[in-house]
Every structure is written in structure tokens, then in C-alpha cells.
């Protein structure tokens, strides 16, 4: 294929995505939000997003559809963030972060469970309906976002390393200077809170 043909081809398909300013701006702000949840330093987050965008632009000929494109750019961003987490000796390791306000840790556990270790009556998990339907629903994802935002920094960071970036335990522990058991307890508490938040703000509302 000649350069001219290639250029024409790109004009018709994927490269035009970058000319769609509204699309790119929306995508950029989503990526930035995602990166900031992971890398609390704004500049580092911006850099990762910038690099992911450039990398996407350089390899754009592989992507024609917006949907596939977004998934792909996010996967580039995830890799950038993982690289960054590996490279940096973190300014603040998770071991030094505060648990933050709201009910967390022991206070949350006391709130959820009776002294004898059983569920408080009101706090027993209810059945969640129609998860497939929820995933399609934009409102659900806004709630999911809000619940993630409401997690204390330390919980959110470790939770996202595990569930979003899919890093393994030794790597997270090494990066964040936490022990395996402390990581597992923090993930437990993060999931307890996230579960509680989703049930209170989405799953119960939907059924009532």
C-alpha cells in the first residue's frame, strides 16, 4: 500500500476518531479519572494518559470501530499505569495512607456484625437482581464510580491494583510495602464497603 493510499484509508476509518474532538475529550477525561484513582499524583496520571493516547495514535490503523478503540486505549493505559507502579518507589506507599473518614475497618465490621460474629439483622446481604441488566445501565456505572470514589484511598488503590490492573499478590505487597495478610484484610474491607454501598444505592433501590 502506498503512503497516499494509507492516508486515504486512515481518513476513512480510524484516524478520523482523533478528529472527533468531543469523542476524544470525553475519552481523555474518562482515562484521566481512571488513572487518578490509581496514581494519585496528577502529573503522573496525565503523563500516563498522554502516553497511552500517543501510543494509540501511532497504532491507529489497527482500529476502526470506536467501541473497540476505547477498550484498546484503556488496555494501553492499564499497562502504562502498571509500568509506572513498578518503576516508581511510591511517594506514599499504601502502608502509609490513612484509612480515611466514614465507617471503615473495625468500625465497619462492628456495624455489620453482632458481637457474636453473626450478621446484624438489617445488614444481612440481600439477593441482587439482574446483574446483566445492571451492567448495561449507565446509571449503574455512575453509582459504581461513586462507590469506588467513596472508598478510603488505601482501600481503593489496593482494590484497583488487584481487580482492575490484575496485579498479583507478591507484586502489590512489594510495591506498597504491605504484608500479604494486611493486603488480604484490606481487600476484604474494601469489598465489604463496596458491597454495602452497591446494595444500599443500587440493588435495594431497584427492587423496592
Amino acid at each position: 500500500m502506498t503512503n497516499a493510499n494509507l492516508a486515504a484509508e486512515l481518513d476513512n476509518s480510524a484516524a478520523s476518531l482523533f478528529e472527533d474532538t468531543a469523542f476524544i475529550e470525553a475519552l481523555r477525561s474518562q482515562m484521566l479519572k481512571f488513572a487518578r484513582l490509581q496514581v494519585r499524583d496528577n502529573q503522573l496520571a496525565e503523563d500516563a494518559v498522554q502516553e497511552a493516547m500517543i501510543s494509540a495514535f501511532q497504532n491507529i490503523d489497527r482500529f476502526a470501530r470506536q467501541a473497540a478503540f476505547k477498550t484498546w486505549v484503556f488496555s494501553i493505559l492499564k499497562n502504562k499505569l502498571i509500568d509506572q507502579l513498578r518503576k516508581e518507589k511510591r511517594l506514599t506507599a499504601a502502608s502509609q495512607l490513612e484509612n480515611g473518614p466514614n465507617l471503615n475497618g473495625d468500625a465497619l465490621i462492628e456495624h455489620l456484625f453482632e458481637a457474636n460474629g453473626h450478621w446484624q439483622k438489617d445488614e444481612r446481604p440481600k439477593k441482587w437482581d439482574q446483574p446483566e441488566h445492571s451492567v448495561e445501565n449507565q446509571h449503574f456505572w455512575r453509582i459504581f464510580d461513586a462507590c469506588l470514589d467513596a472508598l478510603p484511598t488505601k482501600y481503593a488503590r489496593l482494590f484497583m491494583m488487584r481487580e482492575f490492573l490484575e496485579m498479583d499478590t507478591p507484586e502489590i505487597c512489594h510495591n506498597e510495602e504491605v504484608s500479604v495478610s494486611s493486603l488480604n484484610v484490606t481487600l476484604y474491607r474494601a469489598r465489604l464497603r463496596l458491597r454495602e454501598c452497591l446494595e444500599d444505592h443500587w440493588f435495594q433501590k431497584e427492587t423496592s
Binding site: 481512571f34 476505547k70 477498550t71 484503556f74 446483574p131 451492567v135 449507565q138 456505572w141 482492575f164
Partner: peptide, 14 residues
């Protein structure tokens, strides 16, 4: 849900 989180971002504004 966490696994599909970044994937669903693609349908956010369409």
C-alpha cells in the same frame, strides 16, 4: 463487575 468496568466505559457516551 470490576473486570467489565473499563470495558463498559466504551458505551458511556454513545
Amino acid at each position: 463487575l470490576s473486570k467489565s468496568y473499563s470495558k463498559t466505559k466504551e458505551s458511556d457516551d454513545q
